[in-house]
Simulated scan of single mutants.
Amino acid sequence: MPRRRSYDQHCAAARALDAVGDRWTLLIVRELLAGPRRYTDLHADLPGVSTDMLAGRLKDMEAADLVTRRRLPPPASAYVYELTDRGGALLPVLRALAEWGAPALGEPRPTDAVRAHWFAIPLLRALEERGPGITHVTLDEGEFHVRIGSDGTAAYGDGPAEAADAFLRTDTATCRALASGELTLAEAVTTGRAELEETLRVP
Rank of each mutant, 00 (worst) to 15 (best):
R37C: 06
R15F: 12
F144L: 11
A163H: 14
A173W: 03
E128D: 10
R38L: 00
R125E: 07
W100G: 01
I134C: 11
E198H: 08
P75R: 13
A19C: 00
L105P: 00
P92W: 01
D65Q: 15
E129A: 03
T25S: 12
P2I: 04
R109V: 06
A64I: 06
V114F: 03
L90H: 10
G21E: 07
T68F: 02
T84W: 06
V20C: 05
G106E: 09
E182Q: 09
A166T: 07
C11F: 15
H145R: 06
R57G: 10
F119V: 08
A13R: 13
Y156V: 08
R15M: 12
V137R: 03
T111N: 06
A120W: 03
A104V: 08
A161Q: 01
P75D: 04
D65C: 09
I134A: 05
R130P: 00
A64E: 14
R70H: 04
V80A: 03
F167N: 03
T40G: 01
R169G: 12
D112T: 04
S77I: 02
R169I: 13
L168K: 05
D8R: 06
Y81G: 00
G21Q: 04
D140R: 13
R37N: 07
L183W: 08
P132E: 06
E31I: 12
R176F: 05
A166I: 11
E141W: 07
T138C: 04
V20W: 11
P103V: 05
A96Y: 08
T51L: 09
T153D: 12
V202E: 05
G152I: 13
V67R: 03
G88V: 14
A102Y: 00
A14I: 15
D41N: 09
E128N: 07
T51A: 12
D112W: 04
T25K: 05
A19E: 10
A163R: 11
E82Y: 08
G101S: 11
I134T: 13
S77E: 09
R4H: 12
I148Q: 02
T190F: 13
L26R: 09
G149K: 05
G152V: 14
R169D: 10
R70M: 00
E198V: 15
R193F: 06
E182K: 10
H136A: 12
D171F: 06
D140S: 15
E195M: 14
G157Q: 15
D158N: 06
V20D: 00
L200S: 08
E143I: 07
L90E: 02
L46W: 02
D45S: 06
R193D: 01
T84V: 13
V189A: 13
W24D: 04
T184K: 01
D18K: 07
R30D: 09
P110M: 08
R23I: 15
G87I: 05
Y156F: 15
D140F: 12
A163Y: 01
I134F: 06
R130Q: 10
L123M: 10
A12V: 13
R15Q: 11
G88F: 13
P74R: 04
T191Y: 02
L124C: 05
G149A: 08
R86W: 08
T25E: 01
L72N: 03
A19D: 11
F119R: 00
A116Q: 07
A89P: 06
D151S: 15
A194E: 10
A44I: 03
L127W: 03
R109Y: 02
A166Y: 03
R57Q: 13
G106H: 15
H145I: 02
R23C: 07
P92H: 12
